[in-house]
Structures are given as structure tokens and as C-alpha cells.
């Protein structure tokens, strides 16, 4: 979004290109260069995306051409299903967890690393290690050696498996995902904080501001756009959560950790109700779209 705003500023002072055969040929070559990126994105992402929009109103099974329009039936069925309500609630819990815990850890560690130039690289590399590993690997590590009541850390402490209880399973999955994610925020926040003009920081210190005040009144306003962008990304990803829930709990036990992502997936690939899967996919994307619109609105107000 920022890139576009920056681009439009430049555009106003650019000179209109001359018309001529040379220009036209160059223009054609430019479109040819940009075509592969656009074609791949349109064929693989956008067209199936639009199809999902249409499929949500049909009873398609995913195989064959036996399609019937069913209107809003899929949405009515889903809204009446108590499992959907659980999923939506779980996505909201997921959102609250991810907007707070990793963000706070990320801000604390980034602020501390700001002054420690020599150790900075080492800490960033360590913090990012869980982030660069595959969800499958991370999930299986936690499942076998930490959450396992027979041989894992939980077992050694005499506790039951958190993934097996209806009250703890969602938090168990969210815990692993947060363990994998927070280091990314440290690196992003630190990168943004380092862009803060040093004279602002020095001026604040000369004025007698202590560490907390410098953070609160100089660094925090300076990284506001980044905080906002990460916040919106977190909102979008929270409604799309899938990997860690699917791998650690399969949405169970008894649908207690079901999120919309696993709920939709089960419709498509267990009960072959692609229409319903598409409807849930549409609802999930709608929340993400809402977050994007809110983001555009807030950042536009910021620019004024």
C-alpha cells in the first residue's frame, strides 16, 4: 500500500512519453516482459478465486460436471452448524493471542537489541531459527518430544498431553505457531526501529527523556506504520490459520480446536462438499478483506 502511495507521488511529475512507432514497440516489449508474472497469477490464483465465489452457491462435489445452484443453502447450513460457531470463536481467540503475545515479545526483544550492536546478528539468527523451519517439522518436534505424555517433556513433568484435552488443544496448537512466529516480528520491528532518525532520539535524550520515554514518544510513533501493517497481516493470517491446527490436533478432540481453515478442508477432502468448502473459504477471506480495507482507510487518514 505504501509503495503505491509513493508511486503516485512520483507519477505526477513524470513527463508524458512521446508517441511514435519506437515508443509503441518499446511499450509492447514492456508488456511482454510483465506478461509472465501477470498470466501466472491470474490463471492460478485469480480465476480459481472467482470460481470459488461462484461455487459457494452450488452443491458441487468437486468431481464431474453435476452442479446445481442452491442459492444461500450452503451459508444457511454452515451458520446453523455449531462446529462453525466453535471454529469462528477459535479464530477470534487465535487473533487475540497473536495480536498480543508475539507482538509484545517482538517489541521487547527488538528494543533491547537496538542498543546491542555486537550481539544483534547472533540473536536475530537464533530467534529466526524456528521461523525458517517447516510447520511439519516444528509440529512433529513438539508433538513427539514436548507434548508427548510418554517420553516427552510433558510426560517427564507428570502432566497430561495438552493436545488431547478439549480445553487446551487450541492453545497447544497456537503455542507452537507462536513459538515459530515471534522471531519474525523481532526482526521486522528492529528493522523499522533502525530507520528512526537518530537526531530525534538524541534530541529526546538531551531533553532528559529516559529509556521508556524515548521508546514511547520516539520509537513507537516512528514504527507505527510497521506495527499497523504487521497487525493487519496478523488479523488476515489468524482467520486463515491451518497448518499447526491440522498437524497437531486435526481440529479435535471433538472439534474443540477446529478453526475455519480445518473446517473448510474437511468439507472439501473428507466429505466432498466443495460448495460448502468454498462458502467457508469465502467467509474466511471476507474477514481478511475487512482487515485490508480497514488498513487502507487508516493509512489514508494517516497521510492527510
Amino acid at each position: 500500500m505504501l509503495t503505491i502511495a509513493e508511486g503516485q507521488r512520483v507519477r505526477t511529475d513524470s513527463v508524458a512519453p512521446p508517441r511514435g512507432s519506437l515508443f509503441r514497440r518499446r511499450n509492447a516489449i514492456s508488456y511482454l516482459l510483465i506478461a509472465p508474472a501477470l498470466v501466472l497469477s491470474i490463471v492460478i490464483v485469480v480465476i480459481p478465486g472467482i470460481l470459488t465465489l461462484l461455487l459457494a452457491f452450488t452443491n458441487w462435489s468437486g468431481i464431474g460436471l453435476n452442479i446445481k445452484l442452491v442459492g444461500l443453502q450452503n451459508f444457511q447450513d454452515i451458520l446453523a452448524d455449531p462446529v462453525f460457531a466453535t471454529s469462528l470463536m477459535n479464530n477470534l481467540k487465535w487473533l487475540v493471542l497473536f495480536l498480543t503475545i508475539p507482538a509484545i515479545i517482538g517489541l521487547i526483544t527488538a528494543t533491547l537489541l537496538l542498543k546491542r550492536k555486537r550481539m544483534r546478528t547472533l540473536y536475530q539468527v537464533i530467534y529466526l531459527m524456528p521461523y525458517v523451519l517447516a510447520p511439519v517439522v516444528n509440529a512433529l518436534i513438539w508433538m513427539s518430544i514436548i507434548y508427548n505424555p510418554n517420553g516427552g517433556v510433558v510426560g517427564a513433568l507428570g502432566l497430561p498431553a495438552p493436545t488431547a484435552s478439549t480445553s487446551g488443544s487450541l492453545y497447544a496448537a497456537a503455542g507452537v505457531d507462536m513459538w515459530h512466529f515471534w522471531g519474525f516480528l523481532t526482526v521486522v520491528y528492529l528493522g523499522a526501529m533502525r530507520q528512526t532518525p537518530i537526531d530525534q532520539v538524541e534530541a529526546a535524550i538531551v531533553d532528559g527523556a529516559n529509556g521508556w520515554k524515548v521508546f514511547r514518544h520516539v520509537y513507537l510513533p516512528s514504527i507505527r506504520p510497521t506495527l499497523l501493517l504487521m497487525g493487519v497481516m496478523t488479523v488476515i493470517f489468524s482467520f486463515l490459520a491451518f497448518d499447526y491446527v491440522f498437524l497437531l490436533t486435526q481440529g479435535g478432540p471433538a472439534h474443540s480446536s477446529e478453526v475455519m481453515g480445518t473446517y473448510a478442508y474437511a468439507f472439501a477432502f473428507s466429505s466432498f462438499e466443495f460448495g460448502k468448502a468454498a462458502a467457508v473459504g469465502l467467509i474466511m477471506s471476507f474477514f481478511g478483506l475487512l482487515a485490508s480495507c480497514l488498513y487502507t482507510w487508516i493509512s489514508r487518514r494517516d497521510l492527510k
Binding site: P48, L51, L55, F242, G261, F274, G281, S285, G288
Partner: peptide, 9 residues
């Protein structure tokens, strides 16, 4: 665009 919006078709 989320994966879940286009993966099924």
C-alpha cells in the same frame, strides 16, 4: 488472496 479462496477449484 488466501490459499483457501482458490485451492478447491
Amino acid at each position: 488472496v488466501p490459499i483457501q479462496l482458490f485451492i478447491f477449484p
